[in-house]
C-alpha cells in the first residue's frame, strides 16, 4: 500500500511574523522557513505505518516554489521514500493545491493520503477535505490515532466536545491533529541518505491543472495590539479591580 504525504514550506513557527509596510502581505524575505508542523506529524505517521509493515512506500509531495525541495528533503530524512515537487511560483490557494494533489494521486494511485490539518501560515484548514472531495474518497480529519487494517482506517478524531472514532473505507484522506504523534528528529546519517533519494519535479501545466487564485488579497494588516495592563500587588487588589473597575465578576 502506497501513502502520499503532502508537505508545505512555511515560515518557521518560531519566527516573529512581520507584516509588510505596504500592506501587501507578510514579509518572508530572508526569514527562516521550514516544514509546516502538522505535515511533519503526517510524515511521521506515514513512516511509522511503513515501519509497522502496513505501508510499502511513502511518497512526499510539495506544491510551491523551487525552495520547497528543502521540505521534501526533510520528509525524506524522516523516512519518506521519494519526493515529488510540483513547482510553481503562483499564489497556490487550497483549492489549487487540492487539484494538483488530485492529479498526482491519479498518477501515483495511493490508497491513503495523510495531510496536516492546517498550514500555520494561511490557517485555512481546507486542503485535505478538498482533496477527499475531488477524489470522491472518505475523509477523517483532525486525527489523534490511526489504525489501518482490512482495507479500512479506524481513526480517533479530536472534535469540539471530545473524541470520536470513525471507520473509513480506504482509499481515504486523513488529516493530522497535534497529538497523533511526536515527529522524530532527522539524524545526520538519515539527512545524508535523504540527499540520494529520488526527487522528481513536475509543474501544474504538465499535470493539466489551472491554479489561478480565486481569492484576491486586497490588504494585510497587523491586528490592533492589546496593550499590557497593570501588575496588581495581591489577590485582594485583583478582586477589587475585577469587581469595581471592569465589573466582570
Amino acid at each position: 500500500m502506497k501513502v502520499l504525504v503532502p508537505v508545505k514550506r512555511v515560515l518557521d513557527y518560531n519566527v516573529k511574523v512581520r507584516v509588510k509596510a505596504d500592506g501587501s502581505g507578510v514579509d518572508l524575505a530572508n526569514a527562516k522557513m521550514g516544514m509546516n508542523p502538522f505535515d511533519e506529524i503526517a510524515v511521521e505517521e506515514a513512516v511509522r505505518l511503513k515501519e509497522a509493515g502496513v505501508v510499502s512506500e511513502v511518497v512526499a509531495v510539495s506544491c510551491g516554489v523551487a525552495a520547497s525541495a528543502e521540505v521534501l528533503r526533510t520528509a525524506l530524512a524522516i523516512g519518506a521514500d521519494r519526493g515529488i515537487l510540483v513547482q510553481s511560483d503562483a499564489d497556490l490557494q487550497p483549492l489549487a493545491v487540492a487539484r494538483l494533489l488530485k492529479a498526482v494521486c491519479d498518477r501515483e494511485g495511493p490508497a491513503l493520503v495523510i495531510c496536516g490539518k492546517q498550514a500555520i501560515d494561511d490557517d485555512a484548514n481546507q486542503t485535505g477535505q478538498m482533496l477527499a472531495a475531488l477524489l470522491g474518497w472518505s475523509q477523517a480529519t483532525f486525527a489523534s490515532k490511526v489504525t489501518i487494517a482490512d482495507g479500512q482506517a479506524t481513526v480517533v478524531r479530536e472534535v469540539d466536545g471530545g473524541l470520536e472514532t470513525l471507520a473509513v473505507r480506504l482509499p481515504a484522506v486523513i488529516t493530522t491533529d497535534l497529538r497523533l504523534n511526536e515527529p522524530r528528529y532527522a539524524t545526520l546519517p538519515n539527512i545524508m541518505k535523504a540527499k540520494k533519494k529520488p526527487l522528481d519535479t513536475l509543474d501544474p501545466a504538465g499535470l493539466g491543472v489551472d491554479v489561478s487564485p480565486r481569492l484576491v488579497t486586497l490588504k494585510v494588516v497587523e491586528p490592533a495590539k492589546r496593550s499590557a495592563g497593570i501588575v496588581v500587588s495581591d489577590v485582594a487588589q485583583l478582586v477589587e479591580k475585577l469587581k469595581n473597575e471592569v465589573k466582570v465578576i
Binding site: Q93, P94, L95, A98, D123, A124, N125, Q126, T127, G128, Q129, M130, L131, A132, A133, L134, Q139, T141, F142, R157, E158, V159, D160, R214, L215
Partner: peptide, 22 residues
C-alpha cells in the same frame, strides 16, 4: 467549529470554488 471545518471545504471543492476560512 470542528464540524464546520470538516464539512465546508468538501462542499466548496465539490462545487469547484474557494472557501474563506475563519
Amino acid at each position: 467549529s470542528a464540524e464546520g471545518k470538516n464539512l465546508l471545504p468538501r462542499v466548496a471543492a465539490l462545487c469547484d470554488m474557494a472557501q474563506v476560512s475563519d
